[in-house]
Design a binder for these strands. Structure first.
Lengths: 343, 343
DNA sequence: ATATTATTTTTACGCGCGTAAAGTTTTATA
DNA sequence: TATAAAACTTTACGCGCGTAAAAATAATAT
């Protein structure tokens, strides 16, 4: 690394003995120049440590290489994990991911989209808050910037949606629970923010009816995203007042289940499969912590590798073609049963 | 919002009836123009929806308004929470945070710093991986870009370091545990990546000796950041082989404790304070999930509001003054005992 | 009303790079 | 070896904004 101060592409062109337009071409696509000149450029690069100014590039290019990635809540390790996976795919494709969390608030979600607009992203991958989202303004954004939704669907918004097949996954676990013990009651929030929660509710009812069982919806109060606490409080109330209609509880998601398990423990109720257990509890999502609950949580894992991969592929195809989707692709991926100790 | 297409500052100057340099001045500091002209500009802004091109701005300004925020692992809700807090403070100060996670890998940590370099940040807040970090290259980066470390210290790197006072916090909980039952053994990883872990180890030994108790270090194998699993495996081995020297275990951090609790549960060991309990377990950090373990985890909370606030303040002062720190400020904040059910 | 000071306008240049056009050199094809 | 095609060089302009300097104007003080 020589100490010559290369300030810009012009300087670098000089020291490398190649004209600036060719250097520019090289940085936009190394394969667009002759192999021999590429070698010369890369040799010079070894010696001189020059990198194009990203701001000058983005000012002049029609499209940036930025892709926004917005998740509802990074504090939830479930989304943190997904974000990491998707981030990797974006980098792999030669784009630059920008990760933003909506912190469970619609204002922050809009603020995120606003600040993305400022960097003129080539596209955006958005996992919306759901019911709390400002549907109209998110839709406006999605019309300006190619946007693919995942995790939670907002009807008609964006070029495509990829998520989980709640009908399939809920049926899967309901069927399992019914086969191995008492049919489950469904523990959930009365007014969930997440559209998946509604889908799971109806999927539960449908699955139970198909199995000739009577569905029991247990709806607990509580707003926001502090699911563990909501699950804990709801669970405590149910257990203390002996309001559970069966000994098996299917929670709408793992975080509710974690709170519920905590409530059961505090109240001396043994959870699990064995003879000495008073209760079975199952969840949904295969949350990173579900493996370490007491007992470990039986749940359904979402196929987030596929969801992420398809979302990224779809967005990149749109970006490449510089067109919009002819029709809005909605694809749901199947879940997988994770049998553990709690049910 | 009229439909006139304002493409640039020139256009906006035209419709607002103010000269372009004044508009430019306004956007750099609204208070730098006369109140009456500010009003006129803001009135025009209401009608025309123009925003300066961020790339053109950053190309020409000496300093960007970007501040990098690098944490070791966003998948850990502890860091996700901290990141969120600090992000808020950065935004509050009128800067633009860029959140990156090192995903527990030193290559990713360097890659993050590299990609930050590309956006020419005014400063960086870095929570390094610790022992795994490429000390030398991180130091190189910190010499080019004003960098403040937090959470984990790398000796001599960056303008300042803010973290937790492990001596104080460990003494606090050791003292509590000794007062309320058997003196604790210390459960930790043999080769932790995090420098705080080493500090806690020696703090534990010192605290025990001050209390005239014999320290017991229990060091378990395992590399990486999958602390729950390491805690679970180590805990299982200890419990199955009855290797615990006392009935009280202080874990080096909450995530290890979560795994340990899970192991205790699986092996039918009741954890807690009461007479019927075989074991007491405590942790450190007040991890978001520590409230929902079974039983809930007694731990020490780190003062992350103060750590974050001081880190941001310090960095902003450096940025504002456009100087480097005269001497490297190292300040440690005290922890607070969180008494719960496990010990 | 006049002098003084604070703002704004006008004019102009530069930032670093994308990119188009025309001419020149190199490589591939026959 | 001639010819066409591909790649490169030279030249030049534009992107949108920061910012400096000088001139013009407005606000404030005397």
């Amino acid at each position: 690394m020589s100490e010559s101060k290369i300030k810009n592409m012009e300087d670098f062109a000089a020291v490398s003995g190649i004209s600036r337009p060719t250097i520019s071409k090289y940085f936009n696509d190394p394969d667009s120049v002759r192999k021999s000149t590429r070698a010369r450029i890369e040799a010079a690069l070894e010696k001189h440590d020059y990198r194009p100014n990203i701001y000058a590039i983005n000012q002049n290019r029609r499209q940036t290489k930025n892709i926004g990635l917005v998740v509802p809540n990074l504090t939830d390790p479930f989304f943190a994990g997904i974000a990491r996976t998707i981030e990797g795919m974006i980098v792999e494709a030669g784009f630059n991911p920008l990760l933003l969390s909506s912190h469970a608030g619609p204002e922050q979600e809009l603020a995120n989209l606003e600040s993305l607009r400022a960097i003129k992203p080539a596209g955006v991958l958005l996992a919306p808050l759901g019911r709390a989202s400002d549907h109209e303004r998110v839709a406006e954004f999605a019309e300006e910037v190619p946007t693919v939704l995942f995790d939670a669907n907002l009807e008609g918004v964006g070029e495509a949606f990829f998520g989980s097949d709640n009908d399939q996954s809920i049926e899967l676990i309901v069927e399992y629970l019914c086969r191995t013990g008492e049919p489950p009651a469904f523990f959930e929030m009365k007014n969930p923010i997440n559209p998946n929660a509604y889908k799971r509710r109806t999927a539960y009812v449908a699955a139970m009816e198909r199995l000739d069982q009577e569905p029991h919806l247990i709806q607990t109060d509580g707003e926001g995203w502090d699911f563990e606490e909501i699950g804990f409080k709801g669970g405590t109330r149910l257990i203390e007042n002996r309001l559970l209609p069966t000994n098996t509880v299917l929670c709408s998601n793992d975080r509710l289940a974690i709170g519920f398990l905590s409530a059961a423990y505090e109240n001396g109720l043994r959870v699990g499969l064995g003879a000495g257990s008073a209760l079975r509890v199952a969840g949904h999502d295969n949350h990173p912590f579900s493996q370490y609950t007491c007992p470990s949580l039986t749940t359904v894992s979402q196929d987030y590798d596929s969801i992420g991969a398809r979302s990224v592929e779809t967005l990149l195809a749109l970006i490449e073609s510089e067109t919009r989707a002819k029709e809005r692709d909605v694809t749901l991926f199947e879940g997988r049963l994770i049998m553990r100790g709690s049910a």
